[in-house]
């Protein structure tokens, strides 16, 4: 059933005063697809989700669910969990679901128990929500979003506040749901949190889409990042001399734009920091050893997967990644068109 677009945003624009919160965002999701909506806090993810859910009117562009313009009756086939899930605190979890089920209408009586079991909340179903932990609220929020067997799920950071076991369980739940043909758009500001879940990624920064494509493409770009390598050797001057030699530095480090060791000396000249492309690290170490430098320590500093991903969003990646902005989108669009 893949191939049918069930969720689409066409050039969505939203301004709050002079601030441009969402800047001509295009995205789409096909039936049964799990799309990650990535971006740092304040990037425009939640505003976009709100426009897709019909809660906020776009200043320009349009949102569509199941081919019909939002807001409209097709929203009844959408399950949402936008920002922190909220409930009536004086009602129990079960009563909150009953309230939602009554609003939706036509939900069989046994469905509430079924969905509570699915999100592993049966044991706390009759407690008042005011006594719930944040993780329990997240699970109940997911239960409410799934209660009416929606065709589309819009989830805003659904694993917030969950422990690692809870995150894994929610991830498994969402995979199960997607296998049933439900389209899921799940936002997060943490790449690692959703990289094991999504098929495709739309990355947004400053309200504009910076990347739209398969997760593998994004990971590939991120992994071609540059890192800061901290090197120590028994003879620091020999290390510096070797690094000044183009033959030793090699293409990878030059590509990373490193200026040589002199500018980056650290720790009282005992250690040297150099910028080097991630995949060039083994080559560099081999060349240093080949040049007779006894490297006693080599470790990367201050740049994890998230940092690299954020730099990629900001367009601050290595030259090889320079196309990770609008170019990447164009590539993806071309792929989509094909």
């Amino acid at each position: 059933m893949r191939g049918m677009t069930v969720l689409a945003a066409h050039a969505l624009v939203k301004r709050y005063g002079r601030a441009l919160a969402v800047d001509h965002v295009d995205l789409h999701a096909e039936r049964g697809e799990i799309v990650g909506f990535l971006g740092p806090n304040g990037a425009g993810k939640t505003t976009t989700l709100r426009m897709l859910a019909g809660l906020v009117r776009p200043d320009d562009g349009r949102a569509e669910i199941l081919g019909a313009r939002v807001p409209g009756t097709t929203l009844r086939r959408v399950g949402t969990m936008i920002e922190e899930p909220s409930f009536y605190p004086y009602l129990s979890g079960r009563a909150n679901l009953h309230y939602a089920a009554t609003l939706h209408g036509g939900i069989p009586a046994g469905r509430i128990d079924e969905i509570l079991a699915f999100v592993r909340m049966t044991h706390a179903a009759d407690k008042r929500v005011r006594a719930y932990s944040q993780g329990m609220r997240q699970r109940l929020g997911l239960a409410r979003a799934l209660l009416h067997r929606p065709d589309v799920l819009l989830l805003d950071e659904p694993t917030n506040g969950l422990d690692p076991v809870g995150i894994a369980e929610i991830r498994e739940n969402l995979r199960t749901v997607a296998r049933g043909g439900v389209t899921i758009l799940v936002s997060s500001h943490i790449l690692a949190e959703i990289e094991k879940l999504v098929d495709r990624v739309v990355a947004i920064q400053d309200g504009a889409v910076r990347f739209d494509g398969p997760l593998d493409d994004l990971l590939h770009r991120v992994q071609r990042r540059t890192v800061t390598l901290r090197l120590s050797a028994t003879d620091p001057s020999a290390l510096r001399a070797a690094l000044a030699d183009d033959a030793v530095r090699g293409d990878a480090q030059r590509a990373a734009g490193a200026d040589g060791p002199g500018a980056d000396a650290a720790d009282g000249d005992e250690a040297v920091r150099v910028r080097v492309a991630h995949e060039g690290v083994p080559d560099l170490l081999r060349r240093l050893l080949g040049a007779g430098v006894d490297v006693t320590e080599a470790r990367t500093e201050g740049e994890d997967l998230e940092g690299a991903y954020l730099r990629l969003l900001e367009g601050d990646g290595p030259p090889a990644d320079a196309g990770a902005g609008p170019d990447a989108k164009t590539e993806s669009d071309a792929g989509r068109a094909a």
Partner: peptide, 18 residues
């Protein structure tokens, strides 16, 4: 008042968009 206080409009108005 309560739907706003408890931030419930965001789920109520999706469950019933009319």
């Amino acid at each position: 008042g309560e739907p706003r206080t408890h931030r419930m409009w965001k789920s109520t108005l999706v469950a019933e968009p009319d």
